[in-house]
Amino acid sequence: MSVNDNLFVIIMASAIFYGTPLVFASLGELLAERSGVLNLGVEGMMLLGAVAAAWVSTNVGGPAIVVLPLAIVAAMIAAGLGASIHAFLTITLRVNQIISGLALTIFAGAAGLSSYLAGIWQLGQTPVKHQFGKIDVFGLSGVPVVGPILFHQTLLTYFSWVLVVAASFYLFRTRAGLHLRAVGESPQTADSVGISVSRYRYFHVIFGGSFAGIAGACFSLMIVPTWVDGMTAGQGWIALALVIFGFWRPDLTLIGAYLFGALSSLGLTLQARGIHISTALLTALPYVMTIVVLVVVSNTASRRQLGAPAALGKPYEREER
């Protein structure tokens, strides 16, 4: 048995595979939250992305190299449209962000708009035509240990790494990133130095939301790969917890995503190896951790200590008297 059939290697490789949608979704949510807007609609936006990507992949003709990027763009647009509803409600109309986000998930999510569209488009009967398969990067997939883990993943995984690096650079090394953090920490301060609070919030809620669309596309084009109603199975909620888990930092969020990815894949992997632990227990683990993280963070005081953006969840209105 080669070293690459080692249990550790297999779990690590599948952690990255299953963690990839979580990286996209939590990175997008991180951007929105850094601007001070909590978007609980991640799950709904992911499903919108998944259905849009599945449609493009099934119905658009052409080679995979054209169709797959198109599918990703479609997923981003679909989820971005969903996010723009949330942006309009919370930024312009100053609706409670929790209620608006929940409404978005209910409206777009399982048994909602995404299922409706899939029904009309008759998705889910066959696998999608084009999908993201694992690629052998520089022929290094056979290298012991790191080969299967780092050099035998799909393009979406490598794309997510680029985004994580870009987001870190953006947040901490650019002027726009400084402005974004300022808007999330103290919109009054940002406003007083001439930074447009609503422009930053709109942009990051919608752009961040489109990342959730890519996360959805990961399911329908890479993991499953076909349309299944409610196929994201609550991973949008895990993504929300990951943002907190990663202290609102892209790099730590990535690590958290792979940790949860490992938990998600543990059941399958162990079963394949004939190791018998209750699968129900293993499948439940990520969700249990999610609940713990969300409970901790729902307490305002502990949220402050974790380094949450100070204005997170608060609408901003200039002429307050």
Partner: peptide, 11 residues
Amino acid sequence: LGTGHDPVGGR
């Protein structure tokens, strides 16, 4: 904060 008017993305 807020100074400089270079395009979004400037370091």
